[in-house]
Protein backbone atom coordinates (compact mmCIF):
# COMPACT_ATOMS: atom_id res chain seq x y z
CA UNK A 1 0.00 0.00 0.00
CA UNK A 2 2.81 2.38 0.92
CA UNK A 3 4.56 1.53 -2.34
CA UNK A 4 1.39 2.37 -4.27
CA UNK A 5 1.05 5.71 -2.50
CA UNK A 6 4.72 6.56 -3.06
CA UNK A 7 4.43 5.75 -6.75
CA UNK A 8 1.23 7.79 -7.02
CA UNK A 9 3.07 10.73 -5.52
CA UNK A 10 6.01 10.25 -7.87
CA UNK A 11 3.87 9.96 -11.01
CA UNK A 12 2.13 13.22 -10.16
CA UNK A 13 -1.06 14.80 -11.48
CA UNK A 14 -1.14 14.51 -15.27
CA UNK A 15 -4.57 15.53 -16.44
CA UNK A 16 -4.23 18.38 -18.92
CA UNK A 17 -6.35 21.51 -18.27
CA UNK A 18 -7.60 21.55 -21.87
CA UNK A 19 -10.04 24.45 -21.79
CA UNK A 20 -7.59 26.67 -19.87
CA UNK A 21 -4.39 25.91 -21.75
CA UNK A 22 -3.46 25.04 -25.32
CA UNK A 23 -2.15 21.51 -25.64
CA UNK A 24 1.49 20.84 -26.45
CA UNK A 25 1.73 19.06 -29.79
CA UNK A 26 4.82 17.70 -31.56
CA UNK A 27 6.76 20.29 -33.53
CA UNK A 28 6.48 18.30 -36.77
CA UNK A 29 2.75 17.59 -36.33
CA UNK A 30 0.75 18.26 -39.50
CA UNK A 31 -2.54 19.95 -38.66
CA UNK A 32 -4.65 22.45 -40.59
CA UNK A 33 -3.04 23.22 -43.95
CA UNK A 34 -2.01 26.79 -44.68
CA UNK A 35 -2.71 27.64 -48.26
CA UNK A 36 -1.49 30.57 -50.32
CA UNK A 37 -3.89 33.53 -50.14
CA UNK A 38 -3.02 34.76 -53.61
CA UNK A 39 -3.60 32.48 -56.59
CA UNK A 40 -0.47 30.40 -57.08
CA UNK A 41 1.71 31.94 -59.80
CA UNK A 42 3.32 28.64 -60.69
CA UNK A 43 1.47 26.43 -63.09
CA UNK A 44 3.19 23.27 -61.92
CA UNK A 45 0.34 21.44 -60.16
CA UNK A 46 3.03 19.61 -58.20
CA UNK A 47 0.90 19.61 -55.05
CA UNK A 48 -2.11 18.17 -56.82
CA UNK A 49 -0.02 15.54 -58.59
CA UNK A 50 1.63 14.50 -55.32
CA UNK A 51 -1.66 13.66 -53.60
CA UNK A 52 -2.57 9.99 -53.94
CA UNK A 53 -6.25 10.66 -53.13
CA UNK A 54 -7.14 13.74 -55.16
CA UNK A 55 -7.52 15.84 -52.01
CA UNK A 56 -5.66 18.81 -53.50
CA UNK A 57 -7.70 20.85 -55.94
CA UNK A 58 -6.60 23.82 -58.04
CA UNK A 59 -9.15 26.23 -59.44
CA UNK A 60 -7.68 29.08 -61.49
CA UNK A 61 -4.51 29.01 -59.46
CA UNK A 62 -6.35 28.86 -56.12
CA UNK A 63 -5.27 25.83 -54.14
CA UNK A 64 -7.79 24.03 -51.96
CA UNK A 65 -7.53 20.85 -49.90
CA UNK A 66 -10.37 18.49 -49.08
CA UNK A 67 -9.66 17.53 -45.48
CA UNK A 68 -12.14 14.69 -45.85
CA UNK A 69 -9.81 12.96 -48.29
CA UNK A 70 -6.52 14.23 -46.83
CA UNK A 71 -4.44 11.82 -44.74
CA UNK A 72 -2.06 14.63 -43.67
CA UNK A 73 0.93 12.84 -45.20
CA UNK A 74 2.40 16.18 -46.24
CA UNK A 75 3.49 14.97 -49.69
CA UNK A 76 1.83 18.02 -51.30
CA UNK A 77 3.80 20.42 -49.09
CA UNK A 78 7.03 18.56 -49.82
CA UNK A 79 6.32 18.76 -53.53
CA UNK A 80 5.47 22.48 -53.54
CA UNK A 81 8.44 24.28 -55.15
CA UNK A 82 7.42 27.71 -53.86
CA UNK A 83 6.93 26.55 -50.27
CA UNK A 84 3.64 28.41 -49.97
CA UNK A 85 1.66 25.26 -49.15
CA UNK A 86 2.44 24.21 -45.59
CA UNK A 87 0.79 22.40 -42.71
CA UNK A 88 0.32 24.32 -39.46
CA UNK A 89 0.29 22.76 -36.01
CA UNK A 90 -3.32 23.80 -35.46
CA UNK A 91 -5.14 20.66 -34.29
CA UNK A 92 -8.66 22.15 -34.58
CA UNK A 93 -10.19 20.57 -37.69
CA UNK A 94 -13.65 19.17 -37.01
CA UNK A 95 -16.65 20.49 -38.98
CA UNK A 96 -20.39 19.94 -39.04
CA UNK A 97 -20.79 19.84 -42.83
CA UNK A 98 -18.95 17.78 -45.42
CA UNK A 99 -18.52 20.87 -47.63
CA UNK A 100 -16.80 22.76 -44.82
CA UNK A 101 -13.92 20.29 -45.04
CA UNK A 102 -12.96 21.78 -48.38
CA UNK A 103 -10.50 24.41 -47.19
CA UNK A 104 -9.08 27.29 -49.12
CA UNK A 105 -7.03 30.24 -47.91
CA UNK A 106 -9.95 31.40 -45.74
CA UNK A 107 -10.51 30.44 -42.13
CA UNK A 108 -11.77 26.88 -41.64
CA UNK A 109 -15.46 26.80 -40.65
CA UNK A 110 -15.09 24.82 -37.44
CA UNK A 111 -17.97 22.79 -36.07
CA UNK A 112 -20.90 24.78 -34.71
CA UNK A 113 -22.83 23.63 -31.68
CA UNK A 114 -25.93 21.45 -31.83
CA UNK A 115 -29.29 23.22 -31.84
CA UNK A 116 -30.81 24.19 -28.49
CA UNK A 117 -32.97 21.10 -28.12
CA UNK A 118 -30.17 18.66 -28.85
CA UNK A 119 -27.76 20.65 -26.72
CA UNK A 120 -30.20 20.46 -23.84
CA UNK A 121 -30.39 16.69 -24.27
CA UNK A 122 -26.71 15.92 -24.80
CA UNK A 123 -24.77 19.04 -23.77
CA UNK A 124 -23.84 17.84 -20.31
CA UNK A 125 -23.99 14.08 -20.88
CA UNK A 126 -23.16 12.39 -24.16
CA UNK A 127 -22.92 8.60 -24.40
CA UNK A 128 -21.38 7.25 -27.58
CA UNK A 129 -21.13 3.79 -29.07
CA UNK A 130 -18.03 3.33 -31.18
CA UNK A 131 -18.25 1.18 -34.29
CA UNK A 132 -15.11 0.15 -36.07
CA UNK A 133 -16.07 -0.52 -39.69
CA UNK A 134 -12.79 -1.40 -41.35
CA UNK A 135 -9.66 0.70 -41.12
CA UNK A 136 -6.35 0.00 -39.44
CA UNK A 137 -7.16 0.39 -35.74
CA UNK A 138 -5.08 3.57 -35.35
CA UNK A 139 -8.29 5.63 -35.03
CA UNK A 140 -9.55 3.29 -32.31
CA UNK A 141 -6.19 3.50 -30.54
CA UNK A 142 -6.28 7.29 -30.43
CA UNK A 143 -9.92 7.29 -29.31
CA UNK A 144 -9.06 4.93 -26.47
CA UNK A 145 -6.39 7.44 -25.47
CA UNK A 146 -9.18 9.91 -24.64
CA UNK A 147 -10.04 7.66 -21.73
CA UNK A 148 -6.57 7.95 -20.22
CA UNK A 149 -5.92 10.39 -17.43
CA UNK A 150 -4.20 12.98 -19.65
CA UNK A 151 -7.41 13.60 -21.60
CA UNK A 152 -9.94 12.29 -19.07
CA UNK A 153 -12.93 12.48 -21.40
CA UNK A 154 -15.31 11.65 -18.57
CA UNK A 155 -14.83 15.08 -16.98
CA UNK A 156 -16.73 16.62 -19.91
CA UNK A 157 -19.63 14.22 -19.47
CA UNK A 158 -18.69 12.22 -22.57
CA UNK A 159 -18.42 8.46 -22.30
CA UNK A 160 -18.12 5.46 -24.58
CA UNK A 161 -20.70 2.83 -23.68
CA UNK A 162 -20.95 -0.89 -24.38
CA UNK A 163 -24.38 -1.05 -25.99
CA UNK A 164 -26.02 1.03 -28.72
CA UNK A 165 -29.19 0.87 -26.60
CA UNK A 166 -27.43 2.97 -23.98
CA UNK A 167 -25.98 5.40 -26.50
CA UNK A 168 -26.95 8.84 -27.76
CA UNK A 169 -25.01 8.35 -30.96
CA UNK A 170 -22.38 6.48 -32.92
CA UNK A 171 -18.77 7.37 -33.49
CA UNK A 172 -17.76 5.50 -36.62
CA UNK A 173 -14.23 4.76 -37.81
CA UNK A 174 -13.17 2.93 -40.97
CA UNK A 175 -14.27 3.12 -44.61
CA UNK A 176 -17.15 0.63 -43.99
CA UNK A 177 -16.06 -2.66 -45.42
CA UNK A 178 -18.57 -4.83 -47.26
CA UNK A 179 -18.41 -7.20 -44.31
CA UNK A 180 -19.25 -4.51 -41.72
CA UNK A 181 -21.99 -2.68 -43.59
CA UNK A 182 -24.96 -4.57 -42.17
CA UNK A 183 -23.49 -4.66 -38.64
CA UNK A 184 -23.04 -0.87 -38.80
CA UNK A 185 -26.60 -0.28 -40.00
CA UNK A 186 -27.97 -2.65 -37.34
CA UNK A 187 -26.03 -0.83 -34.64
CA UNK A 188 -27.32 2.53 -35.87
CA UNK A 189 -30.89 1.22 -35.86
CA UNK A 190 -30.44 0.08 -32.26
CA UNK A 191 -29.59 3.58 -30.99
CA UNK A 192 -32.73 5.33 -29.67
CA UNK A 193 -33.86 8.63 -31.29
CA UNK A 194 -32.75 11.37 -31.37
CA UNK A 195 -29.25 10.27 -32.22
CA UNK A 196 -25.95 11.63 -33.48
CA UNK A 197 -23.43 10.22 -35.95
CA UNK A 198 -19.76 11.18 -35.88
CA UNK A 199 -17.42 10.25 -38.73
CA UNK A 200 -13.94 10.01 -37.26
CA UNK A 201 -10.87 9.79 -39.47
CA UNK A 202 -10.13 9.93 -43.19
CA UNK A 203 -11.53 6.41 -43.74
CA UNK A 204 -14.96 7.11 -42.25
CA UNK A 205 -15.21 10.42 -44.13
CA UNK A 206 -13.96 9.37 -47.56
CA UNK A 207 -12.39 5.91 -47.51
CA UNK A 208 -8.89 7.09 -46.52
CA UNK A 209 -6.01 5.00 -47.86
CA UNK A 210 -8.49 2.31 -48.95
CA UNK A 211 -10.51 4.66 -51.12
CA UNK A 212 -11.46 2.91 -54.35
CA UNK A 213 -11.12 -0.64 -53.10
CA UNK A 214 -14.10 -2.73 -54.23
CA UNK A 215 -14.25 -4.14 -50.69
CA UNK A 216 -15.02 -0.77 -49.04
CA UNK A 217 -17.67 1.93 -49.20
CA UNK A 218 -15.50 5.09 -49.24
CA UNK A 219 -16.88 6.27 -45.90
CA UNK A 220 -20.24 6.50 -44.18
CA UNK A 221 -21.60 9.57 -45.98
CA UNK A 222 -24.14 7.75 -48.16
CA UNK A 223 -25.17 5.34 -45.40
CA UNK A 224 -25.83 7.52 -42.35
CA UNK A 225 -26.62 11.20 -41.66
CA UNK A 226 -23.38 12.63 -40.29
CA UNK A 227 -23.42 15.35 -37.59
CA UNK A 228 -19.68 15.80 -37.09
CA UNK A 229 -16.63 15.16 -39.28
CA UNK A 230 -13.25 14.71 -37.59
CA UNK A 231 -10.41 14.68 -40.16
CA UNK A 232 -7.04 13.00 -39.67
CA UNK A 233 -5.31 9.71 -40.31
CA UNK A 234 -5.84 9.07 -37.49
CA UNK A 235 -7.23 12.27 -35.91
CA UNK A 236 -5.04 13.52 -33.08
CA UNK A 237 -6.81 12.93 -29.73
CA UNK A 238 -6.88 16.72 -29.19
CA UNK A 239 -8.60 17.12 -32.59
CA UNK A 240 -11.28 14.64 -31.53
CA UNK A 241 -11.76 16.26 -28.14
CA UNK A 242 -11.96 19.73 -29.71
CA UNK A 243 -14.59 18.49 -32.19
CA UNK A 244 -16.73 16.82 -29.52
CA UNK A 245 -16.64 19.88 -27.26
CA UNK A 246 -17.54 22.18 -30.16
CA UNK A 247 -20.47 19.95 -31.05
CA UNK A 248 -21.72 20.22 -27.48
CA UNK A 249 -21.33 23.99 -27.50
CA UNK A 250 -18.59 24.00 -24.90
CA UNK A 251 -16.06 25.93 -26.99
CA UNK A 252 -18.21 28.55 -28.66
CA UNK A 253 -16.13 31.54 -27.64
CA UNK A 254 -12.89 29.99 -28.91
Amino acid sequence: MLKILRERFRQGYRTFPYLKKDPVIAERFRGRPQLPIEPCALDCHACRDACPYGAVQIDQGRVGIDLGLCTFCGDCATACPSGTLTFSRDHRLATRKRDDLLVGPAELQLAAALDERMKKLFGRSLKLRQVSAGGCNACEADINVLGTLVFDLGRYGIQFVASPRHADGLLVTGPVTENMKSALLDTYAAVPEPKLVIASGACAIGGGPFRGSPEVNNGIGDLLPVDLYIPGCPPHPWTTLDGLLRLLGRLERR
Binding site: C51, P52, Y53, G134, T177, F210, G212, S213, E215
Partner: peptide, 18 residues
Protein backbone atom coordinates in the same frame (compact mmCIF):
# COMPACT_ATOMS: atom_id res chain seq x y z
CA UNK B 1 -12.90 -10.86 -42.01
CA UNK B 2 -14.99 -7.87 -40.93
CA UNK B 3 -12.01 -5.54 -41.43
CA UNK B 4 -11.22 -6.93 -44.88
CA UNK B 5 -10.33 -3.99 -47.12
CA UNK B 6 -8.93 -5.98 -50.02
CA UNK B 7 -5.37 -4.78 -49.44
CA UNK B 8 -3.42 -7.38 -51.40
CA UNK B 9 -5.28 -6.78 -54.70
CA UNK B 10 -4.87 -3.01 -54.14
CA UNK B 11 -1.10 -3.50 -54.28
CA UNK B 12 -1.05 -5.29 -57.62
CA UNK B 13 0.38 -3.33 -60.51
CA UNK B 14 2.14 -0.96 -58.10
CA UNK B 15 4.20 0.70 -56.53
CA UNK B 16 2.11 3.83 -56.93
CA UNK B 17 1.62 7.03 -54.93
CA UNK B 18 -0.70 5.48 -52.30
Amino acid sequence: GYQHRGLEPLLQGKPGPA
